[in-house]
Simulated assay, not measured.
Amino acid sequence: MNQIDEGGWPSFVDNRAKDVYDWGVRRFWLHNPFGTVSGEVMQFDQYLDARDAGLDILTENFSEAWGPVTRGSFGEPVELIAYIGTADPDDDRLQTAFDTGNSARILGTMLACVKPLLMANASIGADAAVKLSDDGPAFHFYKYLESIGIPIYVESRPKQANPDWAEFPVFAVNEWWKRSNPEVHQDAAAWALPNSEMKREVVRWIRDYPGKSTDPAVLEDLIQRTRAALLQGDTIILRTDGLRAAGVPFERLVEGIDEQMGIQTGTSAGSGASQPSSTGSVGQKTRRPVAPSNVSEPDAPPPTVEKTGGRSTEGLQIKPATVNGVQKTKKSKVRRPNARSSRRR
């Protein structure tokens, strides 16, 4: 389990993030940066919960530590994606604000929940967002953030009943994503939108690699699964610990991908397709042909509702682009100690 040590976020950035950046990563993914309580769903207001509980080590110096990194202090700017609970209006803190009917208080409460992320120039990942209406307050709040240049990623596969969630980049567990496509598995998720109706980047997490193994066979399987997803035009998140410890260069994950996909080195195809423009318009995800994979995988089990909470993760996200401009990310979760907020739930 990854923990923030007594040095807090500045120590985490200096001692963990820099090594991953030097390996080649340019996109970082933080899972529940302000913690979560075991057995509790991820909270949109986890920053305020941790602050109220006096967990200063999680709440202090976040933007001061990460802001310079996102703006290029390591050498190049990186994208930091902070994955938290979605803005569910049934959450007690949000429900209290919504019950007032005061628009200013509602917006102020929602912005307070993500203030340190905004100050750090971070993107936001929203757990279980697609369970909500695509005409509700959470959807419109995320659209507002996106319109002012803050990228939003939603989990998981959008539903036919609320198809406009496909206007955002989508995040899902890798095996769930593959098994839940109704165009391929008619018995899997008849309620879901198929892959062909995704309008933005698809981010797939290889969750079954815990990150420590340096066994050559394990790492080769990981590399090939990563390459297979890249060749399908998607982004992959995975832990990098074992790869780095074994001396595997970053290039092993991406070499030859552009050539196989017919992308000219030096072009920008796909490198920023998921980002909104400065005017807030939705950038269409670049479509690429599905290439055959040499990865041999067992049939995935029938899909279930996946919750990504309760795990400590550190990993790499790679988006197929040009070889010289490939986008990548580290992913790390911090678990909050089993101390609940002083406010009632």
Rank of each mutant, 00 (worst) to 15 (best):
T267M: 12
I223F: 00
S268I: 03
A245S: 12
R227S: 01
Q232F: 07
V78K: 03
N195K: 10
E314I: 11
T70M: 11
I318Q: 15
T226N: 15
G256P: 12
K331H: 14
I257H: 10
N61G: 02
P158G: 01
S277Q: 10
M198A: 02
E183A: 15
G101Q: 14
S293V: 06
H31V: 05
N121F: 13
R227W: 08
A87T: 03
G247K: 06
F139N: 02
V173R: 03
G280D: 12
A122W: 03
E146Q: 15
D14I: 00
Q284V: 14
P337V: 00
D14Y: 04
A291P: 08
T109Y: 01
R71V: 06
F28H: 11
L107A: 11
G211F: 08
M119R: 15
H140P: 06
A138Q: 14
A172L: 01
V218P: 04
K131T: 09
S277W: 07
N15C: 03
N338D: 14
Q232K: 09
P249R: 12
R345E: 09
N181I: 02
E220C: 02
G325M: 13
V69R: 14
T329N: 12
Q224L: 08
Q284S: 13
E259Y: 10
Q275K: 05
F12T: 09
Q264V: 06
G272Q: 13
W176A: 01
T86K: 06
R207T: 12
